[in-house]
């Protein structure tokens, strides 16, 4: 299934991942992911799309370590993942910034947990706030920020801990169309300047094709990998709004869109 042609080593290897959610009764037990295989390469930007309910968030939760697989395994640099850890940073759709802490304290939180001294961790947090363009709101509280600013702060918080990989679950879903494009460009800039490895879940096929080196299309009931599409558009062409009329972009987007549609409402057997 791998069409990667990526030469870098595999960072995250998902093998035969199978996840059930327990229902109210044992009979209602639901298989949400069934034998999912995914390789996330070092330095790769990998996107996941698929119809609602196909298990994209479940996949992110499993890699983050919040769920215990029924079968299969997840490993990071060859070491089996057991439970959550700072090596896998997560950016949540709902931001998850602590309302009782200032933006600066939120961004420095991972370093505080690690026991870093206050001046040191605040200096580092300020550096990352600057990277996401939030230097001037460091002292504010999350409820005083717009949705886009909250998500920038959440990204800064995750990056400040310098995780091996970054998991993002529809981070821009609640953000208006205009700011969403800006945030997409910024996340690409951060990815290339910091050399990040990102697994990015989204509903939007445009977003996935704009961002990804590859796009994984998932099928529902139970969730599995339907296909993998390599996005061979050079990075320097990935700019809004120009890319919207790029023939390669349109071709790939239509291809992925057709694959997602084919899976919509699909059911195995």
């Amino acid at each position: 299934m791998e069409l990667s042609g990526l030469s870098s080593p595999v960072k995250i290897a998902v093998r035969g991942l199978t996840i059930d959610y327990p229902g109210a009764a044992p009979a209602e037990r639901q298989r949400v992911l069934d034998g999912v295989d995914i390789d996330l390469h070092d330095g790769e930007f990998l996107c996941v799309v698929g119809p609602s309910g196909c298990g994209k968030s479940t996949l992110i939760s499993a890699i983050a370590g919040f769920l215990t697989p029924e079968a299969g395994s997840i490993s990071l640099d060859g070491k089996r993942v057991q439970g959550p850890g700072a090596d896998r940073g997560v950016v949540f759709q709902e931001y998850a910034l602590l309302p009782w802490r200032s933006v600066l304290d939120n961004v420095a939180l991972g370093l505080k947990i690690r026991g870093m001294r206050r001046e040191e961790r605040e200096a580092k947090a300020r550096h990352f706030l600057e990277l996401v363009g939030l230097a001037d709101v460091a002292a504010k509280y999350p409820h005083q920020l717009s949705g886009g600013m909250k998500q920038r702060a959440a990204v800064a918080r995750t990056l400040t801990s310098e995780p091996e990989i970054v998991l993002m679950d529809e981070p821009f879903a609640a953000i208006d169309a205009q700011n969403r494009l800006i945030l997409q460009e910024e996340v690409l800039r951060l990815w290339s300047t910091l050399g990040l490895t990102i697994l990015f879940v989204t509903h939007s096929v445009d977003e996935a094709v704009f961002l990804g080196d590859r796009v994984i299309v998932m099928a529902p009931h139970p969730g599995r990998v339907a296909s993998v599409v390599a996005v061979d558009i050079p990075r320097e062409r990935r700019r809004w709004p120009a890319i919207g009329s790029d023939p390669d972009f349109i071709r790939l987007r239509d291809d992925v869109l057709a694959r997602v549609r084919a899976e919509h409402g699909a059911r195995r057997q």
Binding site: A86, V90, F92, I113
Partner: peptide
């Protein structure tokens, strides 16, 4: 999601209690 955020930043139960549960 708050507890998950703390754990993904490397925190354990104690950090979740201190940073999330008690203030919340």
């Amino acid at each position: 999601v708050y507890g998950r955020a703390i754990r993904s930043l490397g925190g354990g139960s104690w950090s979740v209690l201190r940073e999330v549960t008690l203030p919340a």
